[in-house]
């Protein structure tokens, strides 16, 4: 049974912030935020122990609205701040929320190194295939051929898969969800937050105002329900041919492995060297 929104609203949204929030009507960011708050609620994490860090962009504005220790950082750098917070106070639960351009263009280096380093941080990456806040320029996940304000003749570069990038870079838990599959997203986020090590949840979201409009993908409802048709669960995708998977993407848990967590390892080193004669 899902927790009632009223509870979420009263418990986790900042009462001294102006609502409704800044996002456009129908923006998936709000759905992801709802999922994130329900996941945190389900896990029963004390609000004082949760730090949510974000970068710059539409999605990153969500930190303003939620009643945790929130950190709205510079463009692409959310993970670097989060690393500092986590290492300085390991008992804190650190979650970062970033957009696709934020996490994988300007913050791409930090992203792959956070995955490699395997610090106990959860990264939620809301992928709407564009830079929404700055006006719809092409991002690393804008599909080949798409139009954007900086690719009006059609995009000539190729996009990459954030989730697969995370797997290759060494993240111990990688999942992909969509804003259509919100109930599943709750679960994926819960799993990611519980996971020891660097966990990544890529959320396919809609920007009907920038990306959708320029590429004739329809309104928010059309785009969101469109994810239902394009999303294929991991198990089912395994049995499908590349041809069948064309234009589709997998959803669910893509990777779940166990690896020593560097922040925990460092704790051990710290404890051992503290005992050494100074």
């Amino acid at each position: 049974m899902v927790v009632e929104t009223e509870v979420i609203r009263h418990e986790y949204l900042r009462h001294d912030k102006k609502f409704p929030h800044v996002w456009c009507p129908g923006c998936g960011n709000g759905i992801v935020l709802g999922s994130l708050l329900r996941a945190i609620h389900e896990l029963g994490l004390p609000k004082d122990d949760v730090v949510v860090a974000s970068g710059i962009g539409c999605s990153s504005r969500l930190t303003t609205y939620i009643d945790f220790n929130t950190l709205h950082t510079t463009h692409g750098r959310a993970l670097t701040f989060a690393t500092g917070v986590k290492l300085a106070k390991p008992r804190l639960k650190v979650i970062t929320v970033m957009g696709d351009g934020d996490a994988t263009a300007i913050g791409g280096n930090h992203f792959i190194h956070a995955a490699r380093r395997n610090i106990n941080i959860t990264a939620v990456i809301i992928n709407n295939s564009t830079y929404g806040m700055t006006g719809g320029q092409y991002s690393p996940t804008t599909p080949y051929g798409s139009k954007s304000t900086t690719s009006v003749y059609g995009h000539v570069e190729h996009d990459f898969s954030i989730a697969e990038l995370a797997v290759t870079a060494g993240a111990v838990f990688v999942a992909r969800g969509t804003v259509y599959h919100a109930a599943q997203l709750d679960k994926l986020l819960e799993q990611a937050i519980t996971k020891r090590g660097f966990s990544v949840v890529e959320v396919i979201s809609n920007c009907h105002v920038q990306h959708g409009r320029r590429n004739k993908l329809g309104d928010a409802v059309t785009m969101i329900t469109g994810f239902r048709d394009r999303a294929v669960p991991v198990a089912k995708a395994a049995k499908m041919s590349a041809e069948e998977m064309r234009g589709k993407f997998t959803i669910g848990v893509l990777c779940d492995v166990d690896k020593p967590v560097s922040s925990e390892e460092y704790d051990r080193i710290r404890q051992e060297s503290c005992q050494l004669p100074q």
């Binding site: 009223e6 609203r9 418990e11």
Partner: peptide, 24 residues
């Protein structure tokens, strides 16, 4: 409720003697 991006929908059970939400 879970797809509302604006936290503007709540779905509640409608019992004659509805219990108070204990989810808080």
């Amino acid at each position: 409720e879970i797809h509302c991006p604006d936290f503007a929908i709540t779905v509640k059970k409608r019992y004659p003697e509805r219990r108070k939400t204990n989810g808080v």
